[in-house]
Design a protein around this nucleic acid. Structure first.
Length: 455
RNA sequence: GGCGACGUAGCCAAGUGGUUUAAGGCGGGGGUCUGCAAAACCUCUAUUCGGCGGUUCGAAUCCGCCCGUCGCCUCCA
């Protein structure tokens, strides 16, 4: 099983201890509703999780909530709520929205505010080792004391600031130094610490959570590519400054989601909320769309593309819905498809290729069915493999059949079939048109007439 | 200015030295089936991988230059 490691810049073999694996994924700052980029990132590592589990590997996946930060504090002031209330609201929304997308939940969702005492201990250790300095009640990490700083993002400390738009805090010893502990201003939430009242800096919570849950090193550390610098670079610096060992065996970064060529991000307001996307797209179509490009590549939001995926989805679903009338066995090897699927998944999570196996399998099922073969096994395999990718091939069918007067539809279908029996085709076609106007498409087959809702 | 990614058919998107004279999906053409449809199946739809050079017996795949798009260097999945 090979995955691309952003630090070593190559695909590496995943070696396991006792068939166990630990995964830490950087979660969201709880200052707003989650957007599609969050969904994409969460889904990538969820699919990884599910695949490993399918391979009988014991996975522990943690995804954090950053529930203390400037934006949350601002929002709380504006809405006259406490920081905690704001966070609570968006944490609940996150869970709700991700559930709807059928993202299997992580094992734990630790919050920064529950981690404070560990964080303080962490900073104390860094202090003892001489990696920090105090500046007006805030504590900073000395980037110059970490000789390999910049190894993840290939950055050189000497020109790390040149040409940037960063306003350099003149007091910092080095422009790259970052806050471990921020002194709190008046009317801001705070925690007592050896350095006075304040709150943790952004990067420290992830290091602390990894270490308090997994020890000095985690197997896979994931997140969006936008976190590579400075967030993950800083995590490495502070963690390895303490432990002296490699912080994450694998750094996995998903590509960023874009809207008409530009990154989806909070700063520009250029984003689509997951809950809004779910109003016009089914979970399956959204997932199929996200899975149809490789996780490390950027993906551009485009309604037409997602719509195309929902049509593709039908192909898969139809193949699982064919009644199994066949008796004979074709000598068809389902293991071949399973093996190819696994081969692609284990090659750095190549979901586009893995999906192609599902489509090939669907075609095979249709062919076998026409030839009168037993298709139960292949159908089960199709559903099983799709489920690893979070595609529920029964779900949309059920969903589409909601809110429909089935008895009325059955009446019309019976009526049409009587017309057909009596060769009154004109009347039969009119009835079919009537159904179509209601959004119902029908299909005649040997087993009778079946119908489904169309969009 | 520094670091990095990408550019493959009408569209989306894999492939990163020979097994690929390039997966899969959407769209489109033709056919089979059907009273007609739908679905399904068969078949066609890039002799070619941004451009130009180079390395090699052999390149979409490696190297160089150029053009274009984007990301990070600021909170960000």
């Amino acid at each position: 099983m090979k995955f691309y490691d952003s630090l070593d810049k190559k695909k590496k073999n995943l070696n396991l201890n006792n068939n166990k694996i630990t995964i830490y994924v950087c979660g969201v700052t709880t200052s707003d509703y989650s957007h599609l980029g969050h969904a994409f990132s969460s889904m990538v590592f969820e699919v990884l999780h599910k695949y490993l589990e399918y391979k009988k590997i014991k996975v522990t996946r943690i995804q954090n909530f950053t529930d203390v930060d400037d934006k949350i504090i601002d929002k709380a002031k504006k809405e006259k709520l406490t920081m905690h209330q704001v966070s609570e609201k968006y944490i609940n929304a996150f869970i709700q929205d991700m559930d709807k997308l059928r993202i299997k939940r992580a094992d734990f969702y630790p919050r920064a505010t529950d981690e404070i005492s560990n964080i303080i201990d962490f900073i104390k250790k860094l202090e003892i080792k001489g990696f920090t300095y105090n500046l007006d009640g805030s504590v900073y990490f000395k980037v110059n004391n970490k000789e390999d700083y910049g190894k993840l993002s290939r950055r050189d400390l000497n020109n790390i600031v040149q040409g940037t738009r960063v306003e350099i805090e003149e007091k910092k010893q080095h422009p790259g130094d970052f806050a471990l502990w921020k002194k709190s201003k008046e009317d801001e939430p705070f925690w007592d610490s050896p350095w006075g009242r304040g709150r943790p800096g952004w990067h420290i919570e992830c290091s602390s959570m990894v270490m308090s849950n997994f020890g000095n090193s985690v197997d896979i550390h994931g997140g969006g590519l936008d976190l590579l610098f400075p967030h993950h670079e800083n995590e490495i610096a502070q963690s390895e400054a303490i432990s002296g060992v490699r912080f994450a065996k694998f750094w996995m970064h998903n590509g960023l989601l874009k809207i008409s060529g530009d990154k989806m991000s909070k700063s520009t307001g250029n984003l689509i909320r997951l809950r809004d996307a779910l109003k016009i797209h089914s979970p399956n179509s959204l997932r199929l769309w996200m899975l149809s490009s490789h996780y490390r590549n950027p993906i551009i939001y485009d309604r037409e593309n997602i719509l195309a995926q929902s049509k593709a989805l039908r192909r898969l679903r139809e193949a699982t819905l064919i009644s199994n009338m066949g008796k004979s066995h074709s000598g068809f090897s389902i293991n071949k498809y399973r093996e190819i699927f696994e081969k692609y998944m284990e090659d750095d999570l190549n979901t586009p290729k893995a999906l192609s196996v599902l489509f090939d399998l669907s075609r095979e099922i249709n062919k076998l069915s026409t030839l009168g073969n037993d298709i139960l096994g292949p159908q089960r395999l199709l559903k099983e493999l799709a489920m690893i990718l979070g595609l529920n091939l029964n779900e949309d069918q059920e969903r589409e059949n909601e809110d429909i007067d089935e008895a009325y539809i059955d009446d019309l279908i019976n009526k049409r079939n009587k017309f057909r029996k009596n060769k009154l085709f004109k009347e039969a076609d009119e009835t079919r048109e009537q159904l179509k106007k209601m959004g119902i498409e029908i299909r005649d087959s040997q087993e009778g007439t079946v119908w489904k809702k169309i969009n």
